[in-house]
């Protein structure tokens, strides 16, 4: 992962009448990462996405998408960006293949290229057999998958997915998340908006939480929970075969350890840095069998609820 930004915004603002939907929004998405845009309904996620694509003009502020300004050079942005709207629709009378051909035609792909890419993307989303079925016969899940195929056919550098998993069954969700997780390897940045925190946690490298048009927090997903909920500290959980007060004292005296909570065979150790190696060494040296040791992970729910609650107050 390099540190070039695929999306950058500066004080991005959008009003509908007197209502400010997006309010001085600043955020950036690194190239080749999966970025999750979270937020409650009406937080301005879709409006933000539309501004990134140049489909809605911001009231003020700057947007750069892959180095282009979507308001000045919308075609350049749209040529390399794929967008899957929240509720995607197809031309009902056309088959899956014909729908994709039209999009390929709009993207000025050659005929041979179109054919091979259609086969390729339909294969990816598992719709090869339904290639010549009219889309009016498609189920919700099949539409969503065809939507992904539709986004991928132009081989985009940036993919923006608005609620991609809504309405899918668990198997479909898994399949979709696998596809999304594989995109960065193909040189493609992904930005997805979702309410499904578990899914976001599974595929996203970093997230941003949008509440009332403002980005309340953003950052890499692995450090975010520790920094926001845990106050920047590590919580290391140790399970041993037998409880030992002496061991607790030894660990307490270790440099960097702030607190140890022991209950039964478990210890919960709060530290400044990741001291798993040192702690494991001490436990083993004290001749007490070590069962497991791990850093407690904060779930995205914790982070989300914390910020969501704060902004509600």
């Amino acid at each position: 992962m390099n540190d070039k930004f695929a999306i950058e915004t500066q004080d991005l603002t959008k009003n509908y009448g007197k209502v400010t939907v997006v309010d001085h929004l600043n955020f950036h998405v690194k190239e080749n990462e999966v970025f999750g845009l979270l937020g409650p309904n009406g937080a301005g996620k879709t409006t933000t996405i539309l501004m990134l694509l140049g489909l809605t003009e911001p009231a003020s502020g700057i947007v750069r998408v892959l180095g282009y300004n979507p308001n000045r050079e919308p075609l350049k942005v749209k040529r390399i960006t794929g967008y899957l709207p929240e509720s995607v629709g197809f031309y009902e009378d056309l088959t899956a293949c014909e729908n994709l051909e039209f999009i390929a035609d709009l993207n000025k792909l050659s005929r041979a290229e179109t054919k091979s890419r259609i086969d390729q993307v339909l294969e990816m989303v598992g719709l090869t057999e339904q290639k010549n079925v009219a889309t009016k016969k498609f189920s919700r899940g099949m539409r969503q998958r065809l939507g992904i195929a539709d986004v991928l056919i132009k081989e985009p550098k940036l993919v923006i997915l608005d609620e991609p998993t809504s309405g899918l069954d668990p198997a479909g969700i898994n399949q979709l998340l696998d596809i999304i997780a594989g995109l960065p390897k193909m040189g493609c940045t992904v930005m997805l908006s979702s309410h499904q925190l578990y899914q976001v946690q599974r595929v996203c490298h970093s997230i941003g939480i949008l509440v009332k048009g403002r980005m309340v927090i953003q950052g890499p997903i692995d450090s975010l929970g520790r920094e926001t909920v845990g106050g920047g500290r590590y919580t290391i959980e140790v399970e041993t075969a037998a409880p030992s007060a002496a061991l607790v004292d030894v660990i307490k005296s270790l440099k960097g350890v702030l607190n140890v909570d022991a209950s039964g065979n478990n210890m919960s150790i709060t530290t400044d840095t990741d001291l798993r190696g040192d702690i494991a060494k001490i436990v083993v040296q004290s001749n007490i069998p070590l069962v497991q040791i791990k850093v407690k992970e904060f779930s995205l729910d914790d982070v989300y609820m914390k910020y969501f609650k704060e902004s509600q107050d």
Binding site: Y83, P85, G89, F90, Y91, L106, N107, D150, K154
Partner: peptide
């Protein structure tokens, strides 16, 4: 009504 508008407009067309 067919919800194809935003998909169509996100393609490189004016």
């Amino acid at each position: 009504t067919g919800r194809t508008m935003s998909r169509l407009l996100s393609q490189p067309v004016y």
